Amino acid sequence: MTTVTTRTVEYSADGLTMIGHLALPAGTDRRPAVLVGPEGTGLSDVERRRADALAELGYAALAFDLHGGRYLDDPEEMLARCMPLLADPDRMRGIGHAALDVLRAEPRTDPDRIAAIGYGTGGAIALELGRDGVDFRAIATVNGLITGRPGEAARIRCPVWAGVGSEDPIMPPAQRDAFTAELQDAGVDWRLVVYGGALHAFHHPSVNHTVRPGVGHHPRHAQRAWRDVVALLDECLPVSVTE
């Protein structure tokens, strides 16, 4: 098994001191890199483990922070912060660019070979970076099927993969249709996978659907969505082993 090293990284964004999680594969060579964005509740061990798993595959990976080191498990507090954020593309881009700068500054990162994956709010931020013209190799978003400002999707230069639960009340069919129409009209190489029977945040093991209606974990689809994301990276950002 590949030896992975991890460390926390502090950086400034959105008026807060963010605390990200950086995971690096063994070796000293530059590696393709992946920016990992969390759900609206914030950075948790779920995203940290995903960064670690990506490092096991040979990527440098940074799971970024949304709330200055806090995890907002109170739904009202989370919505009070995230709804204004999701309505403000420039704020989302600011948070994303700050994290991307940290990842690019890491000596192990190949700055010309970076992808972004995100969940919920983190996925929306990944998309906004694409709409801002960041030269990603791929973007993946689970649940975060948020449309952008008119015309800006044409700046997305890479394939976009999106995953959503069929029973997600937060991302209903009308929202899915608006999202895919935006990408199609912009000429983006896109694909959408709808996971049958899954709710919002189906990929996140710690969610409690009894507290948040319409939210719940679906173990089988969570594994499938992760495999789909890894397949996207393998297609668009393959890891080549340096001797």
Rank of each mutant, 00 (worst) to 15 (best):
R30N: 04
D88Y: 14
D112Q: 13
A60F: 07
T109M: 11
L100E: 07
V102T: 13
E106Y: 01
V36S: 11
D73S: 05
Y71P: 02
D101P: 10
D101M: 03
Y71K: 03
D52V: 15
D101A: 15
E76G: 05
V46C: 13
H67K: 00
G96Y: 10
R30A: 13
G118S: 12
G120C: 15
L86H: 08
E76T: 11
G40L: 01
G40V: 05
E106F: 00
M83Q: 14
D45I: 10
A53V: 02
T28R: 12
R93T: 08
R31C: 04
L72Q: 00
E76P: 00
L43W: 00
T109H: 11
T41K: 04
G68T: 00
A53Q: 13
M92S: 06
R91K: 14
P32Q: 05
S44G: 12
G42Q: 04
R108L: 11
A115T: 12
R81Y: 08
P38I: 03
A51D: 04
R113G: 01
G69R: 12
P84K: 05
H97W: 08
Y119W: 15
A105G: 09
A105P: 03
A105Q: 09
S44D: 08
A53P: 06
L100A: 09
A87M: 08
A53M: 00
D45H: 13
D112I: 06
D45P: 07
T41F: 11
P75T: 01
A51H: 09
F64V: 03
D73H: 03
L35Y: 05
D112F: 14
P89N: 10
